[in-house]
């Protein structure tokens, strides 16, 4: 398993955000972490990226326990945060170099990686532009290129399509699905938008801090659209 979470609970003071959350994602699988606002997606995300330390339970990324061996786990992890984390006054290239350095990469190898990563996302010609001048879609692509620079085994994306127009959104969803099938990257994609999830994807339905369902999208939804299934599951009285 590339990503394995078990018995994860987290509370902000008295407010329980996650309760006994557990799921596994196989290598090369696209997993959608689906849940309405306030379901606990962001908390789970913060725990997986070690912004928070776990209080109970474990999270294992590519064989490394996030709590016991955080640096090894983080080295295998690519992250795209919901909020943009680019430096607006630096160029695309400078942003990517900075990130590469944080992962211990430097020298000519880095520039080759950067042009390859930007090329894959059709961003090569924008390498020397300042991020401030880029539109939302290009910024997102820059962030995805950045998250893949160190060739992580697992890629986490927290609502990466927020604020993008429909064609850009669709292209991004398709690209990231391609990363799983072509490059064997394991993806955990959090969203509340059901049209971003394909039938072969794994769906982990999170609601009020608990996993309500975990399975292949096509099987879970049956003959209904996923949106209907999602609404039915999350609107049921607790």
């Amino acid at each position: 398993m590339a990503l394995s979470v078990s018995g994860l609970s987290y509370a902000y003071g008295y407010k329980q955000a996650l309760t006994d959350v557990g799921f596994d994602v196989a290598t090369g699988q696209f997993a959608a972490l689906l849940g309405p606002n306030g379901a606990g997606k962001s908390t789970l995300f913060a725990l997986l990226t070690r912004l928070f330390a776990t209080q109970a339970g474990t999270a294992v990324i590519a064989g490394h326990d996030v709590n016991a061996a955080p640096l090894n786990a983080l080295a295998q992890l690519g992250v795209v945060f919901q909020q943009s984390t680019l430096d607006l006054d630096l160029t695309v290239q400078q942003n990517l170099r900075y990130f590469a350095a944080l992962h211990g990469l430097s020298g000519q190898d880095v520039d080759a990686r950067i042009s390859a990563a930007l090329g894959r996302l059709d961003m090569a010609e924008r390498a020397n532009e300042k991020v401030r001048g880029l539109n939302g879609g290009h910024r997102r692509r820059t962030e995805i290129a950045r998250a893949l620079l160190h060739e992580p085994k697992v890629l986490l994306l927290d609502e990466p399509t927020v604020g993008l127009d429909a064609p850009t959104r669709a292209a991004l969803v398709e690209y990231v699905h391609g990363l799983c099938s072509e490059m064997g990257v394991t993806v955990l994609w959090t969203t509340h938008l059901t049209d971003e999830v394909w039938d072969d994807d794994q769906v982990i339905l999170l609601h009020r801090g608990r996993v309500l369902a975990d399975g292949r999208c096509g099987e879970l939804r049956g003959m209904r659209p996923l949106a209907e299934y999602f609404a039915e599951m999350t609107e049921r009285p607790a």
Partner: peptide, 14 residues
């Protein structure tokens, strides 16, 4: 608030 601190703190460095 802008998030770039998160990028820094999720680097695989102590």
């Amino acid at each position: 608030e802008m998030g770039s601190m998160r990028l820094l703190l999720t680097a695989p460095v102590p």
